[in-house]
Structure formats: C-alpha cells, structure tokens
Amino acid sequence: MNEHQIKVDELIRELGGYWNPFEMLAALTEEVGELADEILKFEGVKGSGDIQTLEEELGDVAFALACIANHYGVDLIEALDKTAKKYRQRDGNKW
C-alpha cells in the first residue's frame, strides 16, 4: 500500500472497518455519478461548476477506489503505473 492508501486504511479502521465489496462498489458508483454531475456543470450542461466541488468529487472517487484496492491488497500507484505503461505501448503511435 502507498502512503495515501495507508491513510485511508487508518481512517476506515478508526470509523469501524470496511464495508462489504458490493457496498464499496455501490459507493464508488455513487461518487462517479456525483463527479459526472459536477463535470456537466463545468461544461455548461447543468448550470456552472465550482473547482472546489470538482476537487471534492475527484477526492471522493479516489477515496472509494482506495477502499476497494485496500480490500483486495492492490497498490493503486503501482496499478496506475502499469496502466500508463500499457497505454504507452498500445496507443503510443495513435496520435
């Protein structure tokens, strides 16, 4: 686990422990929906966006992802690095 996931883990344990995987997935889905709503505001589709709210929603999504990653023992930074390498190799010549 990276330092951010450790902080999430400490907080979750302090608050009583992790939810079940399907509950965490539902929480992630809810947070992604809230992020989508804020992006729609930023793009002028639903009013006007606010950078602080966008930051909060991105943080909520990252927190929910960290909870799921912690449950399964996945380091998110390592996973992100692997994904970036995958895209570089697969899509490096597309643009």
Rank of each mutant, 00 (worst) to 15 (best):
M1W: 14
M1D: 02
M1T: 06
E3T: 09
H4K: 09
Q5F: 11
Q5E: 10
Q5D: 11
I6A: 05
I6L: 07
K7F: 03
L11F: 08
L11M: 06
I12M: 04
I12S: 05
R13C: 11
E14V: 01
G16Q: 10
Y18C: 06
W19I: 11
W19E: 10
N20Q: 05
N20H: 12
P21M: 06
F22E: 03
F22C: 11
E23I: 06
M24W: 07
A26L: 05
A26K: 00
A26W: 10
A27P: 00
A27N: 02
L28K: 04
T29M: 13
T29E: 06
T29I: 04
E34D: 09
E34L: 14
L35S: 08
A36T: 04
E38Y: 13
E38W: 02
K41S: 09
K41I: 12
F42D: 08
F42E: 09
E43Y: 13
G44I: 02
G44N: 03
V45G: 09
K46T: 02
G47N: 06
G49K: 13
D50N: 05
D50Y: 06
I51W: 09
I51C: 02
I51M: 14
T53G: 11
L54C: 08
L58W: 05
L58S: 07
G59F: 01
D60P: 01
D60V: 00
A62S: 15
F63I: 12
L65F: 02
A66P: 11
C67N: 15
I68Q: 04
I68L: 12
I68F: 10
I68H: 07
A69C: 03
N70V: 01
H71L: 00
H71G: 00
V74K: 01
D75V: 01
L76M: 10
L76C: 03
L76I: 08
A79R: 13
L80S: 10
K82Y: 12
A84N: 02
K85N: 11
Y87D: 04
Y87I: 04
R90H: 09
D91L: 03
G92V: 03
N93S: 14
N93C: 14
N93Y: 05
K94M: 12
W95T: 15
W95N: 05
